[in-house]
């Protein structure tokens, strides 16, 4: 095996890791801030893909405008999910999971509905989003398209933005306060429902960004909603809920591991690896690689 293959695997592994990070970052953000497991995350991801596609192909809007409008719509949808549904079950983990997962199922299966009002349902391979920039970078040892490189850039940009946002922006600081001690934050005049609303909106927006960044690599389909959700949970759980560093570390680990697996073993075992890793990490270190919630390890 020559060195070029390793370089290739490494680069694609990092890209793969960044896609995992993008998938997970919204889910991690929402759970980290409001302790709401937003199982509708994957559904919002898919919805973004389809409405962007519709804006472009049915209404003929330009690419970037379609993306901007869809991101706004998805953020509002996230807000609506909190405002009308999740707000009533906050603090009841089982109900939160069931409700948000039911919403996800309703949305995803709803996208497949056929024959109502002439709606044909989003089925089939015809739904493709264009990449941000077309083109391929080719060097003597690696060949990679520019879009994949841009995914890394988007991932780093989001990471940097979130880092600054939660440290220096008023709302970001308020969100952090909520994550650390909700009651104390309430006493300081932070409206927890409004903040959770914000968190859901930002989280959904992040799901949307992930969608427009990742989907050009394949096509837009409903099934990816489920896999995005499981991968997001996987990354968050392995990295430690509510920890940026952990999320990034876990995403890169999984990305590299699955790329290596595909290169030398077979794509078939990727899922086995991911699920096996989650179960193993949860059992050995419930708070995740870099998680700070030590009370979870109080395993008496």
């Amino acid at each position: 095996m020559d060195l070029f293959v390793y370089a290739d695997v490494l680069l694609y592994g990092v890209v793969n890791g960044m896609t995992f990070f993008l998938m997970a970052v919204g889910f991690s953000f929402v759970y980290g801030i409001s302790r709401l497991p937003n199982f509708a995350h994957g559904a919002l991801y898919v919805v973004t893909g389809f409405i962007t596609w519709s804006f472009m192909n049915n209404m003929g809007l330009p690419f970037w405008l379609s993306i901007a409008i869809s991101l706004i719509i998805v953020s509002l949808a996230g807000m609506a999910i909190y405002q009308f549904v999740m707000i009533r079950v906050r603090g009841m983990p089982i109900s939160e999971i069931i409700v948000s997962f039911a919403i996800a199922l309703a949305i995803l299966e709803g996208l497949r509905l056929q024959g109502i009002g002439g709606f044909k349902g989003f089925i089939g391979p015809g739904y493709v989003l264009p990449p941000f920039v077309d083109g391929v970078v080719s060097t003597p040892w690696v060949m990679i398209d520019i879009h994949r490189l841009l995914i890394i850039a988007v991932g780093l940009l989001i990471l940097g933005f979130m880092w600054l946002f939660t440290r220096y922006h008023r709302i970001g600081l308020a969100l952090k306060a909520m994550a650390q001690h909700e009651r104390a934050a309430l006493m300081l005049g932070i409206n927890s429902d409004r903040m959770a609303n914000f968190a859901l909106a930002i989280g959904s927006g992040l799901a949307g960004i992930a969608a427009v960044a990742i989907m050009p690599l394949g096509n837009v389909n409903v099934e990816s909603g489920y896999s995005v959700l499981t991968h997001a949970i996987a990354v968050c759980v392995i990295g430690g809920l509510g920890s940026w560093g952990g999320t990034l570390l876990a995403a890169l680990t999984i990305g590299l591991a699955t790329t290596v697996m595909s290169a030398f073993g077979g794509t078939m075992w990727n899922n086995v690896l991911v699920f096996g890793l989650i179960i193993f990490i949860l059992i050995v270190r419930p708070s995740g690689l870099l998680g700070k919630q030590k009370e979870l390890e109080e395993r008496v």
């Binding site: 983990p93 089982i94 999971i97 949970i233 759980v237 699920f275 989650i278 008496v300």
Partner: peptide
């Protein structure tokens, strides 16, 4: 030994 949502997530993955 896991509690609440963590036990749920692990069993969900099996």
């Amino acid at each position: 030994p896991l509690r609440g949502i963590y036990f749920a997530v692990v069993t969900f993955m099996f």
